[in-house]
């Protein structure tokens, strides 16, 4: 016997796929934003990685921002500061 059931997973997300800017051919001179998710040691992780990128790949000195509360998203005006950067390093984790 077969029963006809309604799918309980709702409708497809309406999220618009974002277009990404073309990737730079090299990181030399690139402006990198580092965004710290507010978790312990996250500042160290993103700063250290960005430091290595500057040292080994010649990016500009990174500029960063921290979430004061890891349970909230970044404020839009904070993210606006990085609008014209070449790349950003962000984190998810604990």
């Amino acid at each position: 016997m077969v029963v006809r059931i309604v799918d309980p997973s709702g409708s497809e997300p309406p999220t618009q796929r974002l277009d990404t800017t073309p990737r730079p051919a090299s990181l030399a001179g690139a402006r990198i934003a580092v965004l710290n998710n507010g978790k312990p040691n996250a500042e160290h992780v993103v700063r250290r990685l960005a430091g290595h990128l500057a040292e080994r790949f010649g990016t500009q000195e990174p500029e960063g921002a921290e979430k004061p509360n890891s349970s909230r998203p970044f404020e839009a005006e904070v993210l606006d500061r990085f609008r014209n950067f070449d790349a950003a390093v962000v984190g998810v984790g604990d």
Binding site: M1, V2, V3, I5, S9, I32
Partner: peptide, 22 residues
Amino acid sequence: LLSSPEEVETVPAPAVHDAPGD
């Protein structure tokens, strides 16, 4: 940071299914 994103295809789930009655 230098890699280009790949296109991802998603297939919408059907609204109804034929499921086993057992």
